[in-house]
Computed example of a mutant assay.
Amino acid sequence: MITFPNAKINIGLNIINRRDDGYHNLETIFYPVNIKDALEIVVADELSFQSSGLEIPGRIEDNLCLKGYHLLKKDFDLPPVKIHLHKHIPIGAGLGGGSSDAAFFIRLINQNFNLGMTDMQMIGYARKLGADCAFFIQNKPVFAFEIGDEFEPVKLDLSKYQIILVMPPVHISSAEAFRGVKPSPVKESLMDLIYEPVSEWKKYIKNDFEISIFKDHPEIRGVKAALYEAGALYASMSGSGASVFGIFDKTPDLSGLEEDNQVFY
C-alpha cells in the first residue's frame, strides 16, 4: 500500500520558557500544506527500509518509520515489511517531513493490517516518536502548545490563498535554532491572533527563531524580504527553518528566487 505524507508550516512560533526536563514550552499553529513524500509498505520475508529522492542523513536504523514499526510490533503481531520512502519534502526545513512520514506509517500499518486503532490510540504512539508527529494523524489545523504535542483545533482555511514555500540551500538543526532563542512569555496568544485577517498577521504574529537564525543566515532573511516584495500578505520562516513561506492572494513572480533556492508552488 502507498500513502503520501504531507508537510506542515508553522504560522507563528512563540518560545515561552525552558522546562525542567530540558525541553521548551511553546505555542504555534500547525497548518498542513501540499508538499508530499511517497511511502510504500509491502509484506516481505524480513524487515527492510530503503529510500529514494532526497538523501536522508543519519543511520537507517534511526529512521522514524522503522522506529514506528518496532514501537507497534511490541503491541501487535505484525509481519515483516519492506518500507520504501521517496523523499521530496526538504530536510532540515522546519516542515515536519520526518514526523509526517512516521505518522503516516502508523496510519498505513493500522489500515493495512486492520489493527483497529482509533485516532487517539495512533496519536499516543506517534507522540513517542516526536513532538509534532501526533499532529499528522488527524492532519488538520491546530493550535499546538506545551512542547508542541498538545493540540486544540482551530478554524483556519487558507484554501483561497496561494501558499508558496522557498527552501534556501541551508540546513538548520533544531539544536542550532534552540541555542540562539530567548524564551519569553506571550502577551497575546496565537490562539486569538490567528483569527485576525491574514493581511494583519505580519503586525502581530512572529517566529521567535527568526532573530538568531536571520543573524547567522542572512540569506534566509533575504528570502522573507523577497516574498514581501513580491506581494505576500504574510511571510515567515517555518518552524526552526530553513524554509520560508509566503501567503499570496495571487500568483507572484518569484523567478529571482528560483535561481538559488527551491520554490514550491
Rank of each mutant, 00 (worst) to 15 (best):
G97E: 06
G97F: 03
G97T: 07
S99L: 05
S99P: 09
S99W: 04
S100M: 10
S100N: 09
A102W: 06
A102G: 04
A103T: 12
A103L: 01
F104G: 03
F104T: 09
F105P: 00
F105N: 02
I106A: 02
R107D: 06
L108I: 10
L108C: 04
I109M: 14
N110W: 10
N110E: 01
Q111E: 14
F113T: 09
F113S: 01
F113Y: 14
F113V: 04
F113R: 06
N114G: 08
N114K: 14
N114Y: 12
L115H: 06
L115S: 04
L115C: 03
G116P: 00
T118F: 03
T118Q: 09
D119K: 15
M120P: 04
Q121S: 11
Q121R: 15
M122I: 13
I123P: 00
G124N: 14
Y125I: 02
Y125W: 08
R127Y: 01
R127M: 02
K128R: 13
K128V: 00
L129I: 07
L129R: 11
L129S: 07
G130F: 03
G130D: 11
D132S: 08
C133Y: 08
C133A: 10
A134C: 08
A134W: 04
A134T: 13
A134M: 05
A134E: 11
F135V: 10
F136M: 12
F136H: 09
Q138W: 00
Q138Y: 01
N139Q: 13
K140E: 15
V142S: 01
V142K: 06
A144Y: 11
A144I: 09
F145S: 13
F145H: 14
F145C: 07
F145L: 04
E146L: 07
I147G: 01
G148A: 05
G148P: 02
D149E: 15
E150S: 09
F151K: 11
F151L: 06
E152Y: 09
E152H: 13
V154F: 06
V154T: 12
K155P: 04
K155C: 02
K155E: 12
L156Q: 01
L156R: 08
D157A: 00
L158M: 01
S159C: 02
